[in-house]
Write a protein that binds this DNA or RNA. Structure first.
Lengths: 106, 106
DNA sequence: TGAAATACTTCGCGATACGATGTATATCAT
DNA sequence: ATGATATACATCGTATCGCGAAGTATTTCA
């Protein structure tokens, strides 16, 4: 998948990954992997970004000696996911423009 | 439309805009406008990028005293457009991931 | 005569995905 | 027991890229 195409998708994908259940970094990557891959450095950057824009909240838990940060989606995060549907509609129109056949130019 | 979402779409949109008929900068912007907007500085950067990666070729013409650069899509450009279909399929899967409902997390 | 449209160009900024690298602990095979 | 692999999070620097701002010209039209 083209790297440029991933931008703008990644943020919403991460939000979607914690939409139903709180989750943590490593698990988010594994859950997303079948659909879209991202490196750890990318994910933690995104999580920090989403936190500072109040799309999610963070709570720390100790799990088997290891530290885990659990991410919880906020109302704003859910709103963002909802708004993505509008963007998606635009994407569909753009896709039609890209794949349209001859004769549309005047 | 989110700026990040546009990345990766713009290149193929520009190629799509010259797919059927050679075109020039100002016209490309106007043709794309109903679907996706971009500034002149963005377009000319893209056109230069697509030229140096052999996705299109350029020919200069004088039109009513004004200089016009006509862009013509190459075989590679058409191939790029074709390959976008694969990316689009991945996008559809990602979209399903984003909009899926409860219960997919184990 | 001057504003708006046409047409292309260059520069610098901000956003951001990623590889490289680092720090720890747990688990599992040998 | 020991070493490899998996788990878990963090930081830094680099490259890419869209865009606003500003510039240069000419044509069209009020």
């Amino acid at each position: 998948m083209d790297i440029q195409l991933k931008r703008g998708l990644l943020d919403v994908c991460v939000l979607a990954a914690i939409k139903n259940d709180d989750s943590y970094g490593y698990k988010i990557i594994k859950d997303m992997k079948p659909y879209i891959e991202l490196s750890e450095s990318t994910l933690y950057t995104i999580l920090k970004r989403l936190e500072s824009s109040q799309m999610l909240t963070v709570r720390m838990f100790e799990y088997q000696g290891r530290l885990r940060k659990y991410y919880h989606i906020t109302k704003q995060g859910l709103k963002r996911l909802d708004e993505f549907n509008d963007d998606w509609k635009e994407m569909l129109a753009i896709h039609r423009f890209i794949t349209r056949e001859e004769g549309s130019n005047e």
